[in-house]
Computed example of a mutant assay.
Amino acid sequence: MIEAVMLWNEPNNKSHWDFEIDPEWTTYGTMVKLAADAIRSERHWLLRVLGGISPIDPGFIANMGRQGVLEHVDVVAVHGFPLDWNHWQIHEWPAKIEEIRVVTDRPLWITEIGVSTFGAEEVQEFGLRRSAELLRGKVERIHWYSLYDLPRAWPATTRHREAEGSSYYRHFYMGLLREDGTPKRALRLFPEYTPEFGLCQWFHFEDHRLDDAVAWLKELGVRHLRTGLSWADSFRPGAEAWFDRQMKALEPFEVTLTYCFTPEHAGVRPHHTSPPHRIEEFADFCARMTRRYA
């Protein structure tokens, strides 16, 4: 059921990795090498994916190459949202892919791509169609983000929150389904692009949407799913039972499982974006989860 594991999420985005603490990403690079080797020792066949980058920055990938990190992973990944957050236009997607291919010979996946309905649902319809026209057949994996809107009662994982203006609120409108589970216009189009298009859906701790999400994924014809297991959540009471339930529910799909989020007590700063004091603890978490679920 697990075809790949991803080592962190958007490490070149300050909302997910504090590069004020780690300005050259040397801690991140060493951590990835250690975790990737730990995963390989547990399941030698499992694909190891460098954390999907956002923004798409060939300089970051070149840095990982100079550090020897790319020798320890099997795939590099990018995230792109040109109709919401990026400073480039949607028709530039093929050029953005080529920018990364210039600096690595590793296979390239798009593990998050999406369009919000913040302005209008018709924009998401256009974005889905145009993304498919530009990208089908260009990469081995495409994961549309996301199935559900983010509930308004939950915070978005971003550093400036409401100070970002509409950029912050767009986080809550990325789903093909509204928060209450009702369909948006683009949902009816999505089966035209499956199973070539997968989905990315993050599940929060004890997420009430899990069972309904599985039913929708099956109905939409989704085969490839990207989700995550939080290192920080692993210290909550009942974490093991929740992880077991989540992963059991996702058995019908080929899963790319993302390992990320530093426990507050383990970080250089007490925050989920912080580099950990001991990178070996993250590698141990990756090995345990891989052994248990892969």
Rank of each mutant, 00 (worst) to 15 (best):
M1N: 11
E3F: 05
V5M: 11
V5W: 07
M6L: 15
N9M: 13
N9Y: 15
E10K: 10
E10W: 08
D18P: 06
F19C: 03
I21W: 07
D22F: 01
D22A: 01
T27N: 13
T27E: 11
T27F: 08
T27A: 11
G29W: 10
G29E: 15
M31K: 06
V32F: 00
A35P: 03
A35I: 01
D37V: 08
A38F: 09
A38D: 09
S41L: 13
S41E: 09
E42I: 08
W45L: 13
L46S: 01
I53D: 02
I61M: 10
N63Q: 10
N63L: 12
V69C: 04
H72R: 10
H72K: 08
V73I: 09
V73K: 04
V75I: 02
V76M: 00
G80K: 04
G80Y: 06
L83R: 10
L83N: 10
D84P: 05
Q89N: 15
Q89S: 07
Q89P: 14
Q89R: 14
I90Y: 15
I90E: 08
E92V: 07
K96V: 05
I97L: 14
V103Y: 04
T104F: 09
L108P: 02
W109Y: 10
W109Q: 05
I113D: 00
V115I: 05
A120N: 12
A120D: 13
E122T: 13
V123D: 15
V123M: 10
G127W: 09
A132N: 01
A132V: 00
L135A: 03
R136C: 13
R136P: 09
K138F: 12
V139P: 09
V139H: 11
W144P: 03
Y145F: 11
D149L: 08
W154A: 15
T157H: 13
E164K: 12
Y168V: 11
Y168N: 10
L176H: 05
L177K: 14
L177C: 11
R178Y: 06
R178L: 02
R178A: 02
E179T: 12
D180E: 07
K184M: 12
R185L: 05
R185Y: 07
L187T: 02
R188E: 15
R188P: 10
P191H: 07
Y193S: 12
L199K: 13
Q201E: 04
F203K: 00
F205E: 00
R209E: 06
L210N: 01
D211P: 06
L217F: 11
E219Q: 14
L220G: 06
G221P: 14
G221D: 10
V222M: 13
V222R: 14
G228P: 03
L229H: 07
S230I: 00
R236C: 01
E240M: 04
F243K: 01
R245C: 13
M247S: 09
E251Q: 15
V255M: 13
T256V: 13
C260N: 15
C260D: 15
P263H: 02
E264Q: 07
A266F: 05
A266D: 08
G267E: 00
H272C: 04
H277Y: 14
C286P: 01
C286L: 01
R288C: 13
M289N: 05
